[in-house]
Amino acid sequence: MPTAPELDAPPKSLRRALADLGAGVRARELWALLAWQDIKQRYRRSSLGPLWITVGMAVTALALGVVNSALFGTSISTLLPSITTGLILWNFMNGCIVEGSQTFIENEGMIKQLPAPVSVYALRTVWRQALYLLHNLVVYVVILVIFFGKLSHPYRLVDRPGALLHPGLSWEIVLAVPGLVLLLLNGAWVVLLLGVVSTRFRDVPPVIQSFITMFFYATPIMWSMDQVRAMNEGSTEGFGSIAVDLLQLNPVYHFVEIIRAPLVGQQQSWTHWLVAGVLTILGWTLALAVLRNYRARVAYWV
């Protein structure tokens, strides 16, 4: 039910938008239960249940690691951990973008029958993707145990003189925790923003589906920036540095790096944190503006 401050505020006010968001966060038992039920329903009557999430991630990471190691001549002991963590993070972001655009559309029945804050449905989607991520982190732990001996010392992803030397695993692994928190915060505003926009304009989800693959190949998931720099080293035409600069314009790259780098002992630039922080502020500003103006219309648009 609306709180007293919310009822006193104009229909289109930041106070009502924040009240909706606050009420959604307080209803954590509801969206947490719904998210878990989504996962159980997906794997209902299967022998392994939600563990299929982990198995699927392990098979995909192993296949991509072996293939890319053979293609680029890179040691699998350093490339596979990088690919695995990149895939785990990409699956979360991809889920927030693709499934986030369908959040309110798929919850049409509940929105029309259950008097709950709009943000509850967005948090349901984000928490479901977070549970997938937690399942997939089991694969990271196994990979870490297998290749710890290599990752615990300085190493190069590319076997070439002058290639970037990564420091190896250290206490900086704890930086992955605030990185994950920042990723969850961004997942929430992405789902809210895309969910509202897609509910009004039904052409948005197919457009997202069309472009999401492009973002995957333009993000250092199956490959690394070290390989790009190595391949363009010594280029006299200047295309190498331009390619690196263009790839760094991809916002997904920065969110991947603030978590993957400490998890696999790679060198990290604080530029990634700066970009991720700025995008978090801008994203939430835009999402709150949309929630402020169109929160009440979602029930009519679905």
Rank of each mutant, 00 (worst) to 15 (best):
262 P>F: 10
265 G>C: 07
90 W>Y: 12
154 P>L: 15
3 T>I: 10
163 A>E: 10
8 D>I: 14
147 F>L: 08
156 R>N: 03
60 T>G: 13
74 T>N: 08
131 L>D: 05
187 G>M: 10
245 D>I: 05
266 Q>W: 13
201 F>H: 08
135 H>T: 04
66 V>A: 06
299 A>M: 11
250 N>H: 05
205 P>W: 05
278 V>M: 08
116 A>H: 03
93 M>E: 03
290 V>E: 04
285 T>N: 11
4 A>H: 08
29 E>I: 13
23 A>L: 09
139 V>F: 05
53 I>K: 04
218 A>R: 01
135 H>W: 14
120 V>Y: 14
282 L>R: 05
29 E>C: 10
163 A>G: 08
291 L>C: 08
185 L>C: 12
60 T>D: 14
115 P>L: 02
12 K>R: 12
45 R>V: 15
164 L>K: 09
214 M>W: 04
155 Y>T: 12
269 S>C: 11
20 D>C: 14
112 K>N: 12
137 L>K: 10
301 W>I: 01
291 L>R: 05
277 G>M: 00
19 A>C: 15
251 P>D: 03
60 T>E: 12
262 P>I: 10
147 F>Y: 11
10 P>T: 15
175 L>D: 01
194 L>K: 05
163 A>F: 11
133 L>H: 03
222 M>E: 09
137 L>E: 11
230 A>F: 07
16 R>D: 03
108 E>I: 13
208 I>A: 00
177 V>M: 06
107 N>G: 01
200 R>F: 05
222 M>K: 05
111 I>C: 07
216 F>A: 14
50 P>A: 01
205 P>H: 03
192 L>W: 06
54 T>P: 15
196 V>P: 04
40 K>A: 10
207 V>M: 15
22 G>I: 00
201 F>V: 02
84 T>G: 04
207 V>W: 14
125 T>S: 13
255 F>G: 02
33 L>G: 10
155 Y>L: 11
141 V>S: 08
264 V>A: 03
287 A>R: 04
248 Q>D: 13
153 H>W: 04
294 Y>S: 13
252 V>W: 12
147 F>C: 12
84 T>F: 06
43 Y>L: 07
140 Y>L: 04
129 Q>G: 08
90 W>V: 06
219 T>N: 07
182 L>R: 02
136 N>P: 09
80 L>A: 14
108 E>V: 15
262 P>H: 10
195 G>K: 06
264 V>C: 01
88 I>S: 00
53 I>Y: 05
233 E>Q: 00
51 L>M: 14
198 S>I: 00
249 L>E: 06
232 N>Q: 10
296 A>C: 09
102 Q>K: 15
147 F>N: 13
36 W>L: 13
25 V>P: 08
153 H>L: 12
264 V>E: 02
47 S>C: 08
200 R>Q: 04
293 N>C: 14
177 V>G: 02
52 W>S: 06
272 H>P: 08
18 L>N: 08
64 L>Q: 15
223 W>C: 01
280 T>M: 07
183 L>Q: 02
49 G>F: 01
166 H>N: 05
114 L>S: 03
29 E>G: 10
110 M>K: 07
25 V>W: 02
131 L>P: 06
234 G>R: 11
115 P>A: 02
87 L>V: 06
25 V>H: 03
213 T>W: 03
52 W>N: 09
204 V>Y: 12
278 V>Y: 13
122 A>E: 14
220 P>W: 01
210 S>Y: 09
66 V>E: 01
